[in-house]
Computed example of a mutant assay.
Amino acid sequence: MTENNVMPVNNKPGRIIEFYQKRWIFFTISLVIMLVGIISAFINGVHLDIQFKGGALLKYSYAGDIDADAAADVVSGMLDRPVSTQLTSDIATNEKRLIISIAGNYGLDAKDQDKLDSVLKEKFPDSKLSLSESSMVEPFFGKKFLTDGIIAIGLSAILVMIYVWIRFSRMGGLSAGVMALVALFHDVLVVFFTCVIFQIPIGDSFVAVTLSIIGYSVNDTIVIYDRIRENTKLHPKTPVDTITNLSISQSITRSINTNLAVLLSVSLVYILAHINSIDSIQSFALPMAVGSISGCYSTICIAGPLWVMWKKRKNSSVAFKNS
């Protein structure tokens, strides 16, 4: 991206990156990401975790080799319910795990679980199957958890927009709030499509990641809006796109450093969780790492340029009415 000399700021020479002039490149990048996510959703489907759809999740440790498809057929044939299986291994302990997800409108009672345990051990006598973990969720509660999670994400985004609207009322609070909301929506979609692409089940970890990313993203956006407000007071006759480019350029180092620190720490958590096969932490850490990148990107490359477009269009409409 090109850089140009601009007016002195606080008696110091400033340099800006032309974010607004490059806006269509950024918008195209985001559009491509969304298209890839949508295509992946059609190919892979959207998988809800047991907390959101109800059913049962069983984790067995085993030795030797085991056929995951054969295990799924055994469980499905016995329970007459949709079943999916997955084989994982703990890098640290070399322990192998068979994960059985049983969907349906009810959980799995103790009698059926004991019977299933016996059938699997009979089918795979040399695998030394041992039940290490089981989770049961009724569909009613799963649906309620899903609804509450969506409401929490929606309310937080709306409250953020209202806060930005009130705080930056002098620079067009509504436009600032709406563009901050657009950036947040962009980040939520990126996190969602990350789960879809990597086939991470949508569960409580997704809600936790989304709410965390909303916090990081809006914090960066507010910093840039503050800088725009200050620079507008210093240079009231300077075009809004130049002021925005300058403000983002002055804040970009801080935004990148903050999100880089988050990315490094979350990446380390993911690596350790992957080594120890801690699925719940992996399903949080990977979307969180991608979401932190998206939060920084949307703040710098999406929210600011969109806000300038809004202001320019509004000014053009006022000028047209007054002519």
Rank of each mutant, 00 (worst) to 15 (best):
G54Q: 01
S118N: 11
L98Q: 07
D69I: 12
P82F: 02
D90H: 06
S101A: 14
A56T: 12
K123W: 04
I91N: 14
K96S: 05
L48Q: 12
P125T: 05
R97L: 09
K123E: 12
Y62V: 09
V75W: 07
Q113R: 15
S101D: 13
G55M: 07
G55V: 05
Q86I: 06
K111A: 14
Y60G: 08
I50R: 04
E95R: 13
A92N: 12
D67M: 01
Q113S: 09
L79E: 01
I66T: 08
A110S: 13
L108Y: 04
D114C: 03
L108K: 02
T88S: 15
D109P: 10
Q113V: 06
S130N: 15
S130Y: 06
D112P: 05
T85Q: 03
D117A: 01
L108P: 02
R81T: 02
D126T: 15
A72C: 05
G64D: 07
V75F: 02
G104S: 07
T85A: 06
K96L: 00
V74L: 14
R81P: 01
F52G: 08
N94A: 12
K53M: 09
A56C: 03
G104Q: 03
Y106E: 15
G54V: 06
R81A: 04
D67Q: 11
S61I: 05
L108Q: 01
D112V: 04
K53Y: 01
G77N: 12
G107Y: 04
S130A: 15
